[in-house]
């Protein structure tokens, strides 16, 4: 079995009224399914002011700096303040990416073009990827997200669900045609993965589970979706870990080891 890096998870106290797993719970699940590290995103930060949620996410992830990789979230509806918040977060090298959820954050990037361009340019300058939820109208269609990669060719843009339920063929074509557009295989099924591979190639696909937003079982379900697609060992290595390691620059900047032994997060 190849190594696994999960490029799409959520680590928060709750999702609306539903309590979420703690950092300790999440790492136990990663251990159980032999996942070496996970990119972690907020959930409530999509609904509420981002700075406090970025700080809370960092505190949670910092309990396991060798396993949990926080992505910052900003609200582009706030204009200049969004760019400032992203600069603040990315000044800390623990943040290795940016996450948007335009559907839940309620914005169409085309209505906020100047701010989005600023944010994308900041991400490019810090050499971190920007992952956006895709597959859901009216703010997060796969075409809308892919457009951002055309606006800012210097920025690495990741389709958060590689087309999700209904846009897989579109995702595959766009990932093939746009050099800086990648797809997080998080939700589509084995038959869809074959299409993504055939058109976009194994170097453009990253494994993600979305677990943390739902319970632990989502992680093995989504690993199954990869393993049942009949891939070669080389394809598996790239999709399950190699591409993520490259975009996260893990060779250049390995994850920090914990300064103190891991402690259980108070719940």
């Amino acid at each position: 079995m190849t190594r696994i890096i999960d490029f799409h998870t959520h680590l928060d106290e709750r999702w609306l009224h539903v309590k979420c797993d703690s950092a300790a719970d999440m790492v136990r699940t990663l251990d159980r399914f032999e996942v070496e590290a996970a990119c972690v995103f907020t959930i409530m930060g999509f609904y509420e002011p981002c700075p406090a949620h970025n700080d809370a996410l960092l505190r949670r992830a910092d309990q396991y700096p060798d396993r949990l990789i926080p992505f910052a979230t900003v609200d582009p509806k706030q204009g200049r303040a969004a760019a400032d918040e992203l600069e603040r977060c990315l000044a800390n090298p623990r943040f290795r990416g940016v996450k948007f959820h335009p559907w839940l954050q309620a914005f169409a990037a085309s209505m906020l073009r100047d701010t989005m361009l600023d944010v994308l340019q900041i991400a490019a300058r810090h050499r971190v990827p920007v992952l956006l939820h895709d597959g859901t109208p009216p703010y997060s269609t796969t075409y809308q997200v892919a457009n951002l990669a055309r606006w800012s060719p210097e920025t690495t843009i990741v389709l958060g669900h590689a087309g999700s339920a209904d846009y897989v063929d579109a995702a595959a074509q766009l990932m093939r045609d746009i050099p800086n557009l990648y797809g997080c295989y998080c939700g589509p099924r084995a038959g869809d993965l074959r299409r993504l591979l055939d058109l976009a190639g194994p170097e453009k696909i990253l494994f993600g589970s979305d677990f943390g937003a739902a319970g632990w079982r989502l992680l093995p379900e989504r690993i199954d979706n990869v393993l049942e697609a009949g891939l070669t060992d080389q394809q598996l290595e790239l999709i399950l870990a190699g591409n993520a390691a490259r975009l996260l620059k893990l060779d250049e900047r390995p994850l920090a080891q914990p300064l103190l032994p891991h402690r259980e997060e108070a719940r």
């Binding site: 099924r189 084995a190 093995p220 379900e221 049942e228």
Partner: peptide
């Protein structure tokens, strides 16, 4: 199953869990 989009093994293990 949703074959051929999904695979039997994945759909069955989802219920096994």
């Amino acid at each position: 199953s949703a074959e051929p989009r999904n695979r039997y093994a994945a759909a069955l293990r989802t219920l096994d869990r």
